[in-house]
Write a protein that binds this DNA or RNA. Structure first.
Lengths: 158, 158
DNA sequence: TTTTTGGCCAAATTTTATTTGGAAAACGAA
DNA sequence: TTCGTTTTCCAAATAAAATTTGGCCAAAAA
C-alpha cells in the first residue's frame, strides 16, 4: 500500500519507539505515547498497512553464532549497461553472506556488505561466489575492525 | 550474558525465522520448528538472555517518512591515534543521521552510513556536523542510487 | 447551525503468552 | 549395563495481552 500517509507527532513517537524496540506491548506503547491501547493499536495497524512500517526483525549477535568477519566490498562491473547490472544483482541475491547490495555513485558501481565465519571462509566465498561473477571487473575489500554505531533507528524528520 | 551457548538445528531454525519476521506468534513459530509452544518459548527466552538475540526492531520505509537520501561516507582522520579516534566516535554518535559507523582496514579509516531528507539536508549535515569534527581529515561520499538487497538475516553457519 | 468525520476511551471478548507438573529421552558414572 | 541425573519435551491450566465493540466528543465540512 503506498498511501501518501500523513504522520503527526504521535505517529512519529510510535515509529521512534518501535524502531528502538518492537517487542514492547501495545499497552506499554500506549502509555508512552499518552493514548489508550485501542487508538494506539489502530495507529500501528495503519502504519503497517500503509507501508510506513515494512517489517519486524530480531537482531542477533554475529559473534554468538560464529560469524567473525564482516566486510564492505566495492565492486566495479565490466560494463555499466542494464544487462550487466541485472546479471550482477541476480548473482548477488543468491549469496546469503551478502547481506546488502547498493548501487552507488562514485568510482565503484556497487557496495556490498558481507558477513561470514572467518577470513578463510571469506576468501573462499569471494573466490567462489563473487570474483566469479562474469560481469565483475574489480573488487576492493574493507574489513570491519570494529563497529561503533549500528543504529536501527532512522532519524524521522520533524 | 555471554554464556558460550550451544546452538542446535532447532535453535538455528528459530533464529532464521525471527530474523526474517519477529512478529510471528509463539504458537506459529512452534509449528514451524516442529515443537509445542512451551519448549519453543523456553528456547527463545534462552536465546534472548544468553545474548544471541540482541534486540527486536521495526523497519520503516525511509521514503515514507521523508528520507530520500542515503549515503556511505569514507572518512580519514588526521592521526590514527586512540585519542583522535575516540574524539571522532564521540562526535559521530551524537549525530542521529549517522546510522552506522565502522572502523575499517584500507585507505579510509571509517565508513559511515548516513540517512537524511534530501541533498540539501545532506550537504548541510556534512558541513555542520561531520566536516566540522576537528580530527577529520578527508571525506568521500558515495550516494546510494538504489538498494537491491538489504537482508535482515545473517547467514548462520551450519 | 447541523451533519459528518475522525479520533478517542472503557470495557468486553478473543487470542496469545506463560506457567505448571510431570513424562520420556539423553547422558554420565559406577 | 544400570541407576540416577539432567535435559527436553508435552498437555493443560492460568495469566497476560491483543483486539473488538459501542459509543462519546471535538473538529471540519456543508
Amino acid at each position: 500500500m503506498k498511501n501518501n500517509i500523513k504522520l503527526d507527532g504521535t505517529d512519529r513517537k510510535i515509529l521512534e519507539i518501535l524502531q528502538r524496540n518492537s517487542n514492547i506491548t501495545n499497552a506499554q506503547l500506549a502509555k508512552e505515547i499518552g493514548l489508550s491501547p485501542a487508538p494506539t493499536l489502530e495507529r500501528v495497524n495503519k502504519l503497517e498497512t500503509s507501508g510506513v512500517i515494512k517489517s519486524y526483525h530480531a537482531v542477533i549477535d554475529p559473534a554468538a553464532v560464529g560469524l567473525g568477519v564482516s566486510t564492505f566490498v566495492m565492486a566495479s562491473l565490466k560494463g555499466h549497461n542494464k544487462e550487466n547490472i541485472s546479471k550482477f544483482i541476480t548473482a548477488i541475491k543468491a549469496v546469503d553472506e551478502v547481506v546488502e547490495c547498493h548501487h552507488i555513485t562514485g568510482s565503484g558501481d556497487f557496495i556490498l556488505k558481507i558477513v561470514c565465519a572467518d577470513i578463510a571462509a571469506y576468501q573462499q566465498l569471494m573466490l567462489d561466489k563473487v570474483s566469479n561473477i562474469e560481469v565483475v571487473d574489480s573488487l576492493q575489500s574493507m574489513v570491519i575492525l570494529s563497529t561503533f554505531k549500528d543504529s536501527k533507528s532512522l532519524p524521522i524528520p520533524g
